[in-house]
């Protein structure tokens, strides 16, 4: 079983976890994205969303599970074949939710190009954007080191 451990700077990451937790709660009740289904009946649409949300709950649990007691002692998080896929998806879901909530004032173009003057952001938006980048970094790490694990799973 392939496993990677990453040492994170506690003082940098800990404040971002409040943002993660806040958005994680909203993902326990509503899908991260639009349904994209044309002309389906209400029951089907509701069931579609319910199953997406059920999946999101497992993803969020896996992501928050990284930041338990061990993390606050050592600053280390670990990815393996048990949690990599779920965490990858959780990061995507939270980044999408950040876009439509806390990062909405920045606009899509700035998010996509990364052309952002941090000094012009409010403290709350800057923290949300740092969280957005942090989650992308986790995704890159997983894709770089565990893509074969995910594709083979």
């Amino acid at each position: 079983m392939k496993r990677i451990e990453v040492k994170l700077a506690l003082t940098v990451v800990a404040p971002l976890l409040d943002v993660v937790k806040e958005l994680a709660d909203s993902l326990r009740s509503r899908p991260a994205g639009p349904s994209g289904l044309p002309d389906v009946d209400l029951d089907f649409s509701v069931e579609w969303s319910r199953e997406l949300v059920e999946g999101q709950r497992a993803e969020i649990d896996a992501l928050l599970g990284l930041f338990g007691e061990d993390f606050f002692k050592e600053g280390v998080v670990a990815f393996d074949d048990q949690n990599a896929e779920l965490i990858l998806r959780a990061c995507a879901a939270i980044r999408l939710r950040l876009r439509e909530t806390l990062l909405k004032p920045m606009g899509d173009e700035a998010l996509e190009t990364g052309d952002i003057d941090l000094g012009k952001l409010t403290l709350a938006v800057r923290r949300a954007f740092m969280c957005y980048l942090f989650l992308a970094t986790l995704q890159e790490l997983i894709i770089q080191h565990l893509d074969e694990t995910i594709l083979g799973g």
């Binding site: 994205g33 990858l88 995507a92 980044r95 996509e112 894709i143």
Partner: peptide
């Protein structure tokens, strides 16, 4: 979407 990473979409 402006959010998901290129490497993520490929995966």
């Amino acid at each position: 979407d402006p959010v998901n990473l290129m490497s993520y979409v490929v995966l």
